[in-house]
């Protein structure tokens, strides 16, 4: 009986250790999980959007680097994960802070299709943040389609900067 009890406690300790590792101490473990959630090859990103932000947001001053995407892709690239990790770390340290993820596209192609593609980019970043342990309720998405380029150029150098997800942090 005591042998069983000890075994049971060992299991509990192991489970706790694993879940803590997964959610907090080593974000990289969670990151490989989030890759599946957000990407074109991944699992469902169907996390229903709960509510709409008011038009007037109490925007915070902190700036975060935009996550960039490949042409016609909404997959979170490995090279961009650290940028999203930084946003997640900030959100964890600052309760009552939310983030609006704005998906953007380059100037080429259908304006309407780019609205949908931009939303998928924002949703992929949202899914990645949720995979890092962020509450989905504080992550809002918005697509700007191809309407808000940061670089007005007409070449790949400009396009690669415009295929992006921007982070706007706000006080809830």
């Amino acid at each position: 009986m005591s042998r069983n009890l000890w075994f049971g406690m060992l299991v509990v300790v192991l489970v706790c250790a694993l879940s803590t590792t997964g959610c907090r101490r080593k974000p990289k473990t969670a990151a490989s999980g989030a890759d599946n959630i957000g990407g074109l090859s991944g699992q469902s990103s169907e996390l229903g959007l709960s509510s709409r932000l008011p038009g007037e947001m109490d925007v915070r001053s902190e700036k975060f680097a935009s996550a960039l995407f490949d042409y016609d892709s909404a997959q979170v690239k490995e090279s961009e994960r650290a940028k999203i990790d930084a946003v997640a770390d900030f959100l964890k340290k600052n309760s009552r802070t939310g983030v609006l993820v704005e998906g953007n596209c380059d100037e080429r192609g259908s304006a309407e299709y780019n609205m949908s593609l931009g939303e998928r980019r924002a949703l992929a970043v949202r899914a990645y943040l949720v995979g890092l342990g962020i509450d989905g309720a504080i992550v809002q998405t918005k697509s700007n389609g191809k309407e808000k380029p940061v670089d007005m150029g007409h070449d790949e150098a400009a396009w690669s900067l415009n295929r992006r997800a921007d982070f706007v942090l706000f006080n809830q």
Partner: peptide, 8 residues
């Protein structure tokens, strides 16, 4: 004007 995208 649902949360997220409304378009097209």
């Amino acid at each position: 004007n649902y949360p997220g995208l409304n378009s097209s």
